[in-house]
Design a protein around this nucleic acid. Sequence first.
DNA 1: GTACGTGGTATCCGTTCGGATACCGGCTAC
DNA 2: GTAGCCGGTATCCGAACGGATACCACGTAC
Lengths: 119, 119
Amino acid sequence: MIEPLAPDMFDEICPSDLSPIRFGDKWTGMVVRCLEHGPRRFSELRVPLRGVTAKVLTKSLRTMERDGLVRRSVAGRQVAYELTPLGRSMVAPMDAACAWAREHWDELLDAREGVLADR
Amino acid sequence: MIEPLAPDMFDEICPSDLSPIRFGDKWTGMVVRCLEHGPRRFSELRVPLRGVTAKVLTKSLRTMERDGLVRRSVAGRQVAYELTPLGRSMVAPMDAACAWAREHWDELLDAREGVLADR
DNA sequence: GTACGTGGTATCCGTTCGGATACCGGCTAC
DNA sequence: GTAGCCGGTATCCGAACGGATACCACGTAC
């Protein structure tokens, strides 16, 4: 999930992949979490989102902009991204999804481990 | 979204594609809705899920089974699928997601139309 | 026996996704 | 002037996704 379940929510081995619930593309959820408490610059987003390349992050942000989730603003030569009201409104269902994942963590894990054990 | 927003939730032009929130793969959400009120057979699932080919539906169901969302049971030569408790528990966050989509319908639509108008 | 329904599998295909790598113009610090 | 940061773009790539089509074994209805 998107909310910090592990000490580092953006950890490579962040188990959030286990949750079948996804918001937008691979990075959308994490971008929303990054912008939740205020605008961030492009390079500020890249730091917590370890491993994302500029191209992929750009594409995610452009899609989010198209969908009305973020607003891109150029001030001088600073580029900042911030959530729109619509983007901010997504935090609630995201929290619900995170709560569900946390609550059913063991079941999710068991299902996968059962499969792993089968091999 | 997955909940009936349009008269026919499984309509080809069902606007649920607009919602950025997805549960599992393309058909997972609709399968959950189909199984919400009891077990269904393979061919019973294919009817409301117009357009899904056997291969794709099978793959979705297998994945859902692997993830502990559905149980597949063979009785005689009847094959039935039903939600597990975990699968059933996904209905709540799905409802939350549907409520969000319904609530922000116009904004979602406006964002896309803005793009369409640009062309 | 033969046509049909059930619950699939096998093969092929085009598109999309996400990433790797290289490169770029504009500006700043030194 | 030249090295570096910022915010990207361009190109290429492999994997996954979703669909089309053909085929199949099994059982039943007629």
